[in-house]
């Protein structure tokens, strides 16, 4: 009997992994290409959620699901053009300070515009309810999040590993100077990757708004977990982020099953353990410019 409960936690951990993956994927992309540690990632996630709450009454949840990530991605273009671009080659501390400031500006702006109280938002009635998968029961909405996360991963993978665009981006991650010497300007690629990464944060915001509180500090709440996932997975590793998200989801679930107070601490312990054994993370590659 206990075994089936344990298995239930493991399978639920996979779903929770999708939750962490959505938040961490964009962070990892921007981190890998430009070396920007985007502390404002949670802020863009929050903007995505607030856009969903504001747009859903006008164009429905489906409309908001499409529009919010695009709008947040457009914001990503502006942020890259105005800020990120100036920091690719400078001391990482500077971009850290910049994005830390940006995170505070976003949180405070949301507080000024929408107030500090959480805004009401629910799962659309059509997506509510439970689904029976064999002996297990899952909320339909979690399965949808899982599906969207899979689709986002597949699309990102295709873009990075199967297109001409992706080849330049991957070359840029390894050796930006060589890409320049070959006569390719990395600038538009950087802009596109920032838009994509920040747009993914917006997507996470829309999807999680119905199941978590929509308030100005919601970004700060998830940011640390997102970083832990990226670090465990390994810098620059696409599959690493995915493996880490699933691992964090499952380990956290099992920890809560046996010893709930350590639920959140489990991911930090996992990170410490992984870094002790593999200092570059699970699948971290050796990247010239970060060594």
């Amino acid at each position: 009997m206990a075994l089936i409960f344990l298995l239930e936690q493991v399978l639920n951990g996979l779903l929770v992994g999708a939750y962490y993956l959505l938040i961490a994927l964009g962070l990892s992309l921007i981190f890998s290409l430009g070396g920007i540690v985007n502390l404002a990632h949670g802020g863009f996630y929050a903007i995505g959620a607030y856009l969903a709450v504001s747009l859903a009454p006008l164009i429905g949840f489906g409309g908001a699901f499409v529009a919010s990530p695009i709008l947040v991605g457009a914001l990503g273009v502006i942020v890259e053009r105005l800020f990120f671009r100036r920091f690719y080659r400078s001391d990482p501390t500077l971009s850290l300070l910049l994005t830390f400031g940006l995170a505070m500006v976003i949180e405070q702006s949301l507080r000024i515009v929408f107030g500090a109280a959480p805004l009401p938002f629910s799962i659309p009635p059509a997506l509510r309810g439970q689904v029976f998968v064999g002996d297990f029961i899952y909320p339909r909405y979690r399965l949808i999040i899982f599906g969207v996360a899979l689709a986002a991963v597949a699309a990102t993978w295709f873009l990075v590993y199967r297109t001409a665009f992706g080849r330049v981006v991957r070359a840029g991650v390894q050796n930006p100077d060589m890409v320049g010497a070959l006569g390719i300007s990395l600038q538009p690629y950087m802009t596109a990757v920032s838009a994509l990464g920040i747009g993914l944060a917006g997507l996470a915001g829309v999807l999680l708004a119905p199941i978590s509180g929509v308030h100005p500090a919601m970004g700060a709440e998830i940011l640390t977990a997102a970083f832990v996932v990226v670090v465990i997975g390994g810098l620059g590793s696409f599959w690493g982020v995915i493996a880490a998200a699933v691992l964090v989801g499952v380990v956290r679930g099992l920890t809560i099953f046996f010893y709930p107070p350590a639920g959140e601490a489990s991911m930090y312990l996992l990170m410490a353990l992984v870094l002790l054994l593999r200092p570059r993370g699970l699948f971290g590659e050796r990247i010239q410019k970060f060594e």
Binding site: N12, G13, L15, G253, I256, P260, G263, A265
Partner: peptide, 16 residues
């Protein structure tokens, strides 16, 4: 169960 104040996902608790 004790819940850390930084927990945002409650699903493992809900399963329990």
């Amino acid at each position: 169960d004790l819940v850390p104040t930084d927990a945002t996902d409650f699903s493992p608790y809900l399963l329990k």
